[in-house]
Amino acid sequence: MEEISLQLLTYVNMLVFIMLYVFMSRYRKVVGFHLGMNIAMVTGGMLSLSVGVLLMVQYTFHFIAITCLSTILGMVAGGIFGALFDYQTMLTGLSNGLMVGIMAPMLGAILINPFLFIVMMEGLICLMIALLVISLRRS
């Protein structure tokens, strides 16, 4: 039961970020470069953090493979979200996604009781997505 819920949570996280990309590509003409840089940093870091921690809690024996996967996923997410706006925005989001994604599986390996941490992390991700949507609607 617990394994199925963790796998479902990982899938839902990736799906939410794909929906956020489709929602954001409608507002790309309105957003200035400063808000675009913040959006690229936040989305790359959040996606790689959640994927790294959730995969490391499930499969404990594959440390290097999970590190490579979460780093590449964070770089691709930061680059794609930044490429909506500018080239320098893409560079900033890519480097920030790399830095968070290479640290995330080590955080997942330390945890002894991972339930509370995962609940708090999902709450923070929901808060950040709500802030992003509000600041997009007001711009």
Binding site: T89, L98, M99
Partner: peptide, 17 residues
Amino acid sequence: DRYAASITKAAVSVSAL
């Protein structure tokens, strides 16, 4: 100015890591 700031951030963080 902005180009120098973004290049500094990307290059220095990755190289030091």
